[in-house]
Design a protein around this nucleic acid. Sequence first.
DNA 1: ACAAGTAATACTGGATCCAAAATACAATCG
DNA 2: CGATTGTATTTTGGATCCAGTATTACTTGT
Lengths: 221, 221
Amino acid sequence: MDIEARPPQTTQQYVLEQLRRAILTGQLAPGSAIRQDALAEQLGVSRVPIREALKILEGEGQVIYRPRRGYMVAELALEDFLEVYRIRQILEEEAVRRAIERITDEDIQRLQDAHADVVAAGQAGEIVAMAAANRRFHFTLIDAAGMPRLRRFLSILWDASDVYRSLYYSEESNRERVEREHQGIIDAVRARDTEDLIRRLGEHRAGTVATFREFMARQDD
Amino acid sequence: MDIEARPPQTTQQYVLEQLRRAILTGQLAPGSAIRQDALAEQLGVSRVPIREALKILEGEGQVIYRPRRGYMVAELALEDFLEVYRIRQILEEEAVRRAIERITDEDIQRLQDAHADVVAAGQAGEIVAMAAANRRFHFTLIDAAGMPRLRRFLSILWDASDVYRSLYYSEESNRERVEREHQGIIDAVRARDTEDLIRRLGEHRAGTVATFREFMARQDD
DNA sequence: ACAAGTAATACTGGATCCAAAATACAATCG
DNA sequence: CGATTGTATTTTGGATCCAGTATTACTTGT
């Protein structure tokens, strides 16, 4: 027998999930204060697991903490977004450089599968599923690098910069661009062509950044 | 008036400092379990601030957490150290690229001051002070980039990879090398020569890594 | 009517208490 | 004698309670 025991879901983990979701979907708006006991009542738990979950989010930079003042959801201006996204790109580049040296055919298959999920979700118009599949796509590549700490950082950065994803994926043209670029990335991985892969990732990012700049400009009307 | 109020020191912040110190100095050995109530009694506080501090350290990767099993100090094998150090280098490189475009003469003066502190501490044989001054040196440059999130990540990575510093600075030859390389970095900053600066940082890192490899090889006797 | 000072209120930080899970240990059975 | 199951102890996770601080509202004086 070699059964992997299911890690028991503790209350703080549950709270953490709920908080992440609320922040991601904007139910907890950026800049708004987080009232601990209101949240506790709402989720039907005490304030202790709330506090501990908030400490983790603080460490990830998702919420801002001021002693005796409490927590508020971190705001992410365009400038901040670009900073996070830039860091993410640098680290992802390092990850894929290693990954391409060690990646197996099996991994590449998973990459292709994840991409298929992205396309399917996109055609079905399921924004959340598409974002999730997209994350899986990128992290399949990142995981192949075998750098657990780098992976952890990228995971945090990903969540932190994924705030506007629903705006993003809701545009047909963006979905098409993502699909096209992903396939190019897969091809580069198959060919084990590092420089081509890096170049494509760079373009992938440039396209995303350009899109966001447009969004933000449009917001300022 | 625009006075920034000093945030009052809360108990968890105190606990956090103590824990960091204990981990850094090895009083809490890597791999050892952290007993919460023992710690609470030792520091004269309740378990609540202990737990919250541990949650922060968990987020930084300094301790490992398993639900219902508790916390243990993260172990850092050579391989892990190299990974952390590599990430640190990549991010520092990005930071200094930006920094060199925006750095003021005043900043450069602070850089020179920090370096003087490194040298002074080194000659006095004060390892801890030397490590602190060294940290200040690097972060003076990093701060000039004006990328707060990048700075935060670097700060975490710095702490996480600074475990062996006492072994490191205790060698005369290393101290001399650090001093020499730092001066070279300052010169490159003064000349606003980005590529030279990057090159020197790369060498700085290579030297450190080589030193650590020797250490670890020696450990295996 | 407006500003300043004061009192009331709300919310966070910390301590204690209780329950549940994990580990260590002992007893019993093959 | 070894293994397995049952029990006791340890330790963590969560809830409630209390104290201290910040914010808000109100009152009073100019």
